[in-house]
């Protein structure tokens, strides 16, 4: 990778809040035009990383650059070329939709009309409500307005901190279609999410835990690196099956996945007789009417595995 292809780079970034280590020697790099996902548990340091990369706070140590600009020295240049949508709704609730958009345009010294084609697709749904106060918009519409405001100066890099939390499945899908369109403009997008189906839509994802990057790969690469044999089980009494399976030694983890449970078995302990013997064992314990089969892992299974591995208890 040529350095000129890199849009966002962090090297050995650490940040402490009194006794809490928010970021611990974190490094990552995002290529130009890439859709890069940050996934990790609450408190993993994702928002702190966003605030450092957007030059709102300084790291205790380490360096980071955005489009070649240093976050400490060149913060003014960086602020002109990035868009940032924080986790919490951060527009002015007492201003109307139109006023919010004009305000953000004026802050960046552009006219709304200058870059309107970029946001047209997003803004057209809320344009009819131009004179409504932002605080009175529905969740999905607030999201669209916030994204429009973050884009009005046509940034090179867009930072989105959990943009779809609290957004319904249909609006979520729409939101990601908008992001796909933005990619065609060559905008680099760094986005955090707790929805694993969204992680799948990224070019690459970084799994972050306790302020460190555990893995950074394409979603396919993450899935291919999964180490266990995975089984799905479904039946009449799902809660009882879950508790029962938890007590078995060879079972590394059992989690519910919608209508099934996914059972991770250590590859070394799995053989072709395993499903039969597990079936027998469960039947002896009084479980009835259940089915088991081998399945391919999803990115969510990988996430569960990652977070289990590093925790030391399970």
């Amino acid at each position: 990778m040529k350095s000129s292809d890199i849009s966002v780079e962090a090297k050995g970034v650490s940040k402490n809040y009194s006794s809490v280590k928010a970021l611990d020697d974190l490094s990552l790099s995002v290529q130009k035009g890439e859709m890069f996902g940050l996934i990790g548990p609450d408190g993993a340091g994702k928002s702190t990383l966003f605030r450092i990369l957007t030059t709102l706070i300084l790291p205790d140590s380490g360096v980071a650059t955005i489009e070649g600009f240093d976050i400490k020295r060149d913060y003014k240049s960086i602020r002109r070329i990035i868009g940032y949508m924080p986790g919490r709704f951060s527009l002015y609730g007492d201003l109307t939709v139109d006023e919010n958009l004009s305000f953000f345009a004026s802050v960046f010294n552009v006219k709304v009309a200058d870059n309107y084609p970029l946001i047209e697709n997003i803004f057209k749904d809320i344009a009819p409500f131009g004179s409504r106060r932002a605080s009175r918009l529905s969740g999905g519409m607030k999201q669209k307005l916030a994204l429009s405001c973050a884009l009005i100066h046509k940034p090179s890099v867009l930072f989105l901190d959990e943009p779809t939390t609290g957004v319904d499945p249909v609006s979520r899908r729409e939101f990601w279609q908008m992001l796909e369109r933005l990619k065609t403009y060559g905008i680099t997008i760094v986005v955090s999410t707790s929805y694993m189906d969204e992680a799948l839509l990224c070019d690459r994802v970084a799994l972050i835990k306790e302020g460190r990057v555990l893995s950074s790969d394409s979603p396919r690469g993450v899935i291919d690196s999964y180490q266990n044999t995975l089984l799905a089980i479904w039946g009449d009494d799902m809660h009882s099956l879950l508790k029962e399976l938890r007590s078995y030694n060879e079972v590394k983890s059992v989690y519910s996945f919608g209508q099934e449970h996914h059972i991770a078995i250590d590859k070394k302990l799995y053989n072709h007789n395993y499903i039969d013997s597990l079936t027998q064992k469960l039947e002896e314990r009084g479980e009835r009417n259940f089915h088991i089969k081998v399945i391919a892992p999803t990115i969510e299974d990988c996430y569960m595995e990652f977070s289990a591995n590093k925790e030391g208890y399970e």
């Binding site: 548990p41 609450d42 569960m304 977070s307």
Partner: peptide
């Protein structure tokens, strides 16, 4: 009311076990 909004996959599942 949306008790698991923005909660990571693992914590969501632990929460649902409390619900059960």
């Amino acid at each position: 009311d949306e008790p698991t909004g923005g909660v990571d996959p693992k914590a969501r599942r632990q929460f649902w076990e409390l619900i059960y």
